[in-house]
Simulated scan of single mutants.
Amino acid sequence: MARIPYADPAHPDHVDAAGHIVASRKKLGHLHRMLLHAPPIAKGWITMFDAVRWDSTLSGRIRELVMCRVAAINDAPYEWEAHAPLALKEGATQAQLDALRDWEKSDAFDATERAALAYCDAMTKQVHVPDDVAAKVRSIFPPRELVELTVTIAGYNCVSRVLEALDIKGTDPL
């Protein structure tokens, strides 16, 4: 059970933010129901993550692989369960998902994916990215995509931290 009850989307204080979420996502997920406790944050969250997911020029495969890698590092199963199917739809393979927890020892990833995953690991585990890792992604990704990659990794670290701190699971919030 989550650490606090899920917010009631029908509550007058939550209706506007709930409508904003549903307009974007077509449903209210567990995370969204929790975020409704802070309606301006819920709306801002959706706006930011819509930009990360739908307005980015970054490859969907890379985007979803780093989201899953963040989930693996942070032991965030709800995040993994949400994004592993999306990674497959975006062109990642089941072999890549199976190897993602120990990706450095796998030959399932190409040079671009390896650079993105190394960058993800550094950002998630160390915060400060070593110069050699930064130089590698900078040599592969144009500036816009590098910013999008960086914000995707940072953003989904935020997602996993909210999920885990509030103990949001994949069970029905009602």
Rank of each mutant, 00 (worst) to 15 (best):
A51V: 09
E113P: 04
A18M: 00
L174R: 07
A118K: 08
F109R: 04
Q94T: 00
A71T: 08
M67G: 07
S59R: 10
V127D: 10
L166T: 13
N74Q: 11
V133Y: 05
A71F: 06
L117V: 08
L163F: 15
I168R: 05
E64N: 12
F49P: 06
A84E: 14
W103Q: 02
H128S: 15
I46A: 15
K89D: 15
D50W: 09
T152Q: 09
Y6D: 02
D110Q: 13
E148T: 11
I73C: 09
V15I: 02
I73M: 09
V129S: 05
L117P: 05
K89G: 14
T152Y: 07
A18Q: 02
G170F: 07
Y119H: 08
P39G: 10
G170N: 10
P142M: 01
I46H: 14
V22E: 13
V159W: 06
Q126A: 09
W45D: 15
V66G: 10
R25D: 12
F49G: 10
I140R: 08
D13L: 05
R69S: 03
F141A: 13
G170H: 05
S160V: 04
H11I: 07
Y6T: 10
E145V: 05
P40C: 04
L149C: 12
C158I: 06
R63L: 12
Q126H: 14
I4M: 02
I4T: 05
H37M: 01
A118C: 13
L100E: 13
A38S: 12
A38N: 10
E164T: 11
L166M: 11
H11M: 06
L146E: 03
A108E: 11
E145G: 00
M67C: 13
I140F: 12
H20V: 00
F109S: 03
D75L: 09
E79C: 14
P173N: 05
A2C: 00
V66M: 10
H83K: 03
V162G: 11
V137G: 10
A10H: 12
L58D: 07
D102R: 04
A116Y: 04
